[in-house]
Amino acid sequence: MAQNKLNIKAEAKNLNFFYADGTKALKDVSLPVYENKITALIGPSGCGKSTFLRCFNRMHDLYPGNRYEGQILLHPDNTNVLAKGVDPIEVRMRISMVFQKPNPFPKSIYENVAYGLRVRGERSKSAVDDKVEEALKGASLWNEVKDRLQDLAFNLSGGQQQRLCIARALATDPEIMLFDEPTSALDPIATVNIEELMSGLKNKLSILIVTHNMQQAARISDYTAYMYLGEMIEFDATDKIFTNPGRKETEDYITGKFG
């Protein structure tokens, strides 16, 4: 991958989103997601960060009545993820997600990581073995679990479960990974683990992360977007946002005057 050239991996363009009850949760939101970079979404509770994130992999399709307007283009092929003709399953094959609360499946550690490969119909045992090992290493979990891959995933600690979910999302070689407050249910040490992990992952893919923790955004992200009441208030390089924001609202939020 070209390290110095800045490519746009995906971009939201004039995105509006309506929940089934009519709530307009996103108002004309536009945002680029740069390749091999970490983009953080910050903003007060209820401003639409999760709603926005979940548009990228069409999670809202699971609940009837939700409606998107606008585009999310996925490059290099310029596919509009939100287009009617685009199969959400195809989208989710390319864009994976890690949730706020670790949500391993009631299966062994091995089968959790292999899940994405299994649903893609991968039969070769050696191919699955290799991918599982690679993903667990990528999620810095391999050394802790390599001797008990057949144990139930629920027997892991919360931080380990979250890394397992990251391994699960990694195993299918996604182009983008979405994280929705991935460390908010974890203790500080597990949080540091996962932050380091994400920083390492960006060599392979592009990351969009929602976080409540501004230090976290400052520590790990390259770009930061500030959202408020369903609108994108400001987007810029993280350094810029945290040292010299362009908008008063952003500054107020970052300095803790508000939110």
């Binding site: 399953i89 899940y115 649903v119």
Partner: peptide, 19 residues
């Protein structure tokens, strides 16, 4: 959230229900 985890991995409704 367990179903969402499965769908997010690209699983179909049927795969999610059975697996």
């Amino acid at each position: 959230n367990m179903r969402e985890g499965s769908y997010a991995m690209g699983a179909t409704k049927f795969q999610t229900a059975i697996r």
